[in-house]
Simulated assay, not measured.
Amino acid sequence: MEFKLDESQETEIKTYVFDVVKDAIKQATTTSKPYLNRKEIAKYFGVAESTITYWASLGMPVAVIDGRKLYGKQSITNWLKSHEMPSQRQNKKPV
C-alpha cells in the first residue's frame, strides 16, 4: 500500500510525530524522578496545581530545600492512601 501526500500533509505528520516522541521522552524522564515540582506532581496525579497547594495545606508531605518545594511521588501516594475511606453507598431507591 502506498500513500501520496502533498508537502503540507507530510510536514503536518512529521510535526505530529516529533511532538509525540518529545512528549514521550519528557514523560519517561519525569516518571523516573522521585521528586517533582508542583507543576510536575500535579500532572503526575492528574489534578490541578491548586489542588497540590490545597493538599499541602492539609498536611501532605512537602520537602523544602533552599526555599524550593519538592514533592515526593511515593510520599504523596502514601499520604493519599492514609486518607482513603470505604465508599459510602447510599441505598436510595428510584422514585
Rank of each mutant, 00 (worst) to 15 (best):
S32W: 08
S75Y: 11
K43T: 08
E84I: 11
S57P: 06
G46Q: 00
I52K: 01
E40M: 05
L80H: 08
N78H: 14
G72L: 03
A42V: 12
H83A: 15
I52Q: 01
P86C: 10
Y71L: 03
K92Y: 10
K39L: 01
K92S: 08
E40W: 00
L80T: 06
S75D: 14
L58K: 10
R89K: 06
Y44T: 02
Q74A: 10
A56K: 04
L70P: 02
M60F: 01
Y71T: 10
K33Y: 05
K92F: 02
S75P: 13
Q90R: 09
H83L: 15
Q88E: 09
I65Y: 08
G67H: 02
T31S: 08
Q90S: 11
P61F: 02
M60S: 06
K39I: 03
K43G: 05
R89V: 10
V47F: 06
S82D: 12
V64T: 15
T51A: 02
Y54N: 11
H83T: 14
L70C: 07
T31C: 14
G46V: 10
K81Y: 03
N91I: 14
W55A: 11
I65W: 06
I41S: 01
V47D: 05
K43L: 03
K81L: 15
N91H: 14
R38S: 04
K73D: 01
S82P: 05
L70G: 01
M60H: 05
W79Q: 06
T51K: 03
T77M: 11
M85K: 13
M85R: 12
A63P: 05
P34Q: 07
W55C: 03
S32A: 06
H83C: 13
Y54T: 03
H83M: 15
T77W: 06
L80Q: 02
P86V: 15
D66E: 14
A63M: 07
I41K: 03
I41Q: 00
E84D: 12
E49G: 01
I52M: 01
S50C: 00
T31E: 08
T77H: 11
K73N: 02
Q90P: 12
R89T: 15
Y35Q: 10
Q90K: 13
G67K: 07
L70S: 09
K39V: 15
H83K: 15
T77N: 07
Q88C: 11
A48Q: 12
Q88N: 13
I52C: 01
R38M: 04
F45L: 13
M85N: 08
R89D: 12
G46P: 06
K43F: 04
Y71A: 04
Y54H: 04
K73F: 02
K43Q: 14
K39H: 03
K81E: 14
G59E: 08
K43A: 00
G72C: 13
T31R: 11
A48E: 15
Y54C: 07
N91G: 14
E49V: 11
S57K: 11
N91K: 12
V47N: 07
N37F: 09
K93S: 04
S75F: 11
K69V: 10
P34K: 07
I76N: 05
S57R: 00
K73G: 02
K33D: 09
T77K: 10
Q74T: 14
A63N: 14
G46H: 09
A56W: 06
Y54F: 05
F45N: 05
I65F: 11
K69A: 07
V64C: 08
G67C: 11
